[in-house]
Amino acid sequence: MTDQSLQDQALQAIAAAPDLDALQAVKTRYVGKSGLVTKELGTLGKLPPEERKARGAEINAVRGAIEAALTEREALLKQAALDAKLASEAIDVTLPGLPLPAGGLHPINRVYDDLTAIYERMGYAVIEGPEVEDEHHNFEALNVPWYHPARDLQDTFWLEDGRLLRTHTSPMQIRYMVNHEPALKVVVRGKVYRYEATDATHEAMFHQLEGLVVGDGISMTDLKGTIAEMARGLYGPTARVRFQPSYYPFVEPGADFAVWWENPRGESKWLELGGCGMIHPNVFKAVDDLREAEGRERVYEGKTGFAFGLGPERIAMLKYGIPDIRYFYANDPKVIGQFRGELG
């Protein structure tokens, strides 16, 4: 066989090899240890030295051509094998995945978290406290004596043992101040209760966020600035705050605050959000009296401070367009499950 026909024959076999195993057989037949080309190289020793070099070059050329073809074919067959494997692994990715549960927070806590995030940024600690209170913490210590008509403003659930369900988060002002010394900055979150028939805007149980700051030289402008900071955090940089005189027995002066809301989905307006004021000296006195009774130092006389309170339900209803306060506690998964992700 001539070199040329050997080479032709080998290249033909390579091209015809259907898979990697067949190609390996071709490789063995021609360039393996006892392959045809390898054998031909073995004959070089019998040639006269002056012919050897030329003949060697000729055979190596054939071998080189065959090996190049083998490499090329091998790469091709490997790719084909991989393609075939991948093709066999194809999945219809439009079929749904495993329906794992997806959790979320209740809308009230979403609003709470929005609010407390603003206050945490300003260095406030977020605290909670008991929902069953005594009359002293809920009323008396907050400058609402038993005979005061202001009690009419807060219809109360009384308990058989003489205690009550707190009508506001303000008793935590007393509890926190008794156990801590000024200066202090806290916000309180938690449930409150009013003896009120339930309708679209009234609930016997709802929530409040209460703020309390006490220190030296705290002024009413600090209060307004703090509310304005919250308003911008909640409603964006265009939000403005309006204070109007009002009355809460545990503050003096007292105010109601409203926020100008540029509503992206409707009419922009002033939202009456809550009440606030400068802590009444009688509250500081009641705290110091309680501290003294526990053998602690009186530390609140001469301090000033402010307190404010607002309802997350109202904010959630206005912000998210919830039509009825009763939606919050019915826990219909189709309602409360909506409040996920960025709520705008």
Partner: peptide, 12 residues
């Protein structure tokens, strides 16, 4: 509008 400037007492 201003903001309170205070350093909270260690008990807090």
């Amino acid at each position: 509008e201003t903001l309170p400037t205070l350093r909270v007492h260690a008990s807090n």
